[in-house]
């Protein structure tokens, strides 16, 4: 045992079958590392987005075209299929608000099984932190979602729906939804290392989840038609999120924050535990990459 190397001011790494131990970092070093990691993450997120628009004729414009096309589809559904009258155009926004926020969630969850495998080269060749990889993945999806949010804002203005002070509750609801997405994405990304077909299953599961969430219909419909299962229905976080978004954007009312806060606390705690565990476990499961 080379204990001499473990003296102060010498960085060391010890690798054994039990895992990896490193010389402890000072508080200042930890803060610097955190700052540097965030700077790196920001840069890589930008690169990820650039890569997505590479070679597309519309270039950066594609990022706007995609949510516009999606909005057009829902406009078509509401105006043509369901034949809502122009006075009922709130129905279109009712769906659009839900879809925009749901897609942010579903893209994170559906894409999570590929997070580790698609970065396997970097992860198996460098000590790039898995935690930072999640930050980058979620950061990229969130950046794209922000573009969608801009498109939503344009539609709100077109339909003369102007959100008010209720917007202050929006960050909390979004944070709660993000914590739920992160909590699910972490284990799913590890699952994706072992089950290459996880991604296929997930798309089906999230599709079902969308239809059991009040995205295309009001939650009151469930309370009216199936009052006995409402309590089960309310276990679905999106029964709260989607209602909250609509209240904020369309009704300008502060939603009930109790359930949302509860979800935030539970999911954040579980996410933190998951990240700590999987960062340590990385050493053992990366050989399957």
């Amino acid at each position: 045992m080379n204990e001499a190397g473990k003296k102060k001011n010498v960085k060391w790494t010890e690798i054994t079958p039990k895992g990896i131990r490193k010389s402890p970092r000072s508080f200042d070093e930890t803060i610097t590392l955190l700052k540097d990691s965030l700077t790196r993450a920001r840069f890589i997120v930008t690169s990820e987005i650039k890569a997505r628009v590479f070679g597309k004729s519309l270039g950066w414009g594609w990022l706007v075209v995609e949510p516009l096309m999606m909005a057009w589809i829902y406009y078509f559904i509401s105006a043509v299929i369901f034949a809502f009258r122009p006075t009922d155009m709130n129905q279109f926004l009712f769906i659009l608000v839900a879809v925009m926020f749901w897609r942010w969630f579903s893209k994170i969850v559906d894409g999570s099984p590929n997070v580790i495998t698609s970065h396997s080269a970097a992860l198996t060749q460098t000590n790039f932190p898995v935690t930072l990889l999640f930050v980058i993945f979620i950061g990229a999806e969130t950046a794209l979602f922000c573009v969608n949010l801009g498109v939503l804002a344009v539609f709100l203005i077109i339909f003369q729906v102007y959100p008010g002070t209720a917007l202050v509750a929006l960050p909390l609801v979004m944070l709660s939804q993000l914590s739920l997405a992160v909590m699910l994405a972490i284990p799913l990304s590890v699952l994706g290392v072992f089950f290459k077909d996880a991604s296929g299953f997930l798309v089906a599961i999230t599709a079902i989840w969308w239809y059991v969430s009040p995205g295309m219909y009001p939650v009151e419909l469930v309370e009216k038609n199936a009052p006995n299962i409402v309590w089960i229905y309310n276990l679905n976080p999106f029964a709260h999120y989607l209602v909250a978004y609509r209240q904020i954007f369309l009704d300008n009312t502060i939603p009930s924050l109790g359930p949302i806060l509860a979800i935030l606390v539970v999911c954040s705690t579980i996410s933190w535990l998951e990240l700590s565990f999987f960062q340590k476990a990385r050493y053992f499961y990366f050989k399957y990459l």
Partner: peptide, 19 residues
Amino acid sequence: AGLVPIKTGRIYLEGDHLL
């Protein structure tokens, strides 16, 4: 570099390392 788990033995590195 600590990227592959070892079954037996020990690896000790003194200093920053980069693969």
